[in-house]
Design a protein around this nucleic acid. Sequence first.
DNA 1: TTGGTTGCAAACACTTTGCAGCTGA
DNA 2: TCAGCTGCAAAGTGTTTGCAACCAA
Lengths: 154, 154
Amino acid sequence: MPPEQKAGATVRPAVSPWDDIAERLHANGLRWTPQRRTLIEVLKEQQGHVTASELIASCKERDRTTTPSTVYRALDLLEELGLVRHGHGHDGREEYHVLPDQVHGHLYCVGCGTTWEIRPETGAVIVDALAAQLGFDVDLSHVTISGRCAGCHD
Amino acid sequence: MPPEQKAGATVRPAVSPWDDIAERLHANGLRWTPQRRTLIEVLKEQQGHVTASELIASCKERDRTTTPSTVYRALDLLEELGLVRHGHGHDGREEYHVLPDQVHGHLYCVGCGTTWEIRPETGAVIVDALAAQLGFDVDLSHVTISGRCAGCHD
DNA sequence: TTGGTTGCAAACACTTTGCAGCTGA
DNA sequence: TCAGCTGCAAAGTGTTTGCAACCAA
């Protein structure tokens, strides 16, 4: 994983929003705790989608003392800060995705159980179609579509 | 593919698949019970999408003695018979839809909480786009897309 | 009669909440 | 110091399962 890339650039956030998260917490009167540090380390690696349970498990690997409630509370907080968002996967569980990533939806194959991302280019077709036909403003990051992937629908 | 497609104009399932359900149950060595009758009456009216909890509530209105486990088991059974299908709504709950209806997806507005159907015509754009670009065969009936409706995204 | 069904209650998995004690700033 | 945080345990949801009694065929 990419280590701490300290960029002195004044212009753009050097690497990712995660870098100045401690500051952002402070700015809101919140604290930078070991538990949150652990969660964020995990999130940085997981760029994409993860279920809360997976996150909890990953945090436990780094810190045996991790408790679910703390993780859930931290996730709520990070969501308020706009660093993660949550939706629901094909099985209805809470599913989080980190924002530095491009906004994307998910495809779930009922054949092999794999999940893919819907790239913004592809998603645009969906977004545009619904906007044009129904005036509906799609939040692609909340979309999970089931079906069968190329390798499973013969 | 289509299992029993009665193409002939003569022999056409009179109204809906629900009509001969008792027979279909018998054909499989299953039984036609008051509880199932109640559930099916409810399903017939609800054409569209319903959560399991809503179905249970509706059944309770007709029969105070309805218990959740019975409804869940009956739904499983009806799904095996191909009369209903389930997916997950925006909040992750089990969501059922009856098949006589056209295959459709769902739109959920995070602004007003309303849910709309995605008609097959509109859905086709989504299906086609994913098929063309990723070779993914979308199951539209399993799709729930969140966003903001025309009246909420000003 | 008899095996599919039901109701109940307990088990489950996941998430939320209350609270006393701990701790980062 | 002291408000924010954590851990634990308990409460809540929504869904599933085991089992003895029940009843449709």
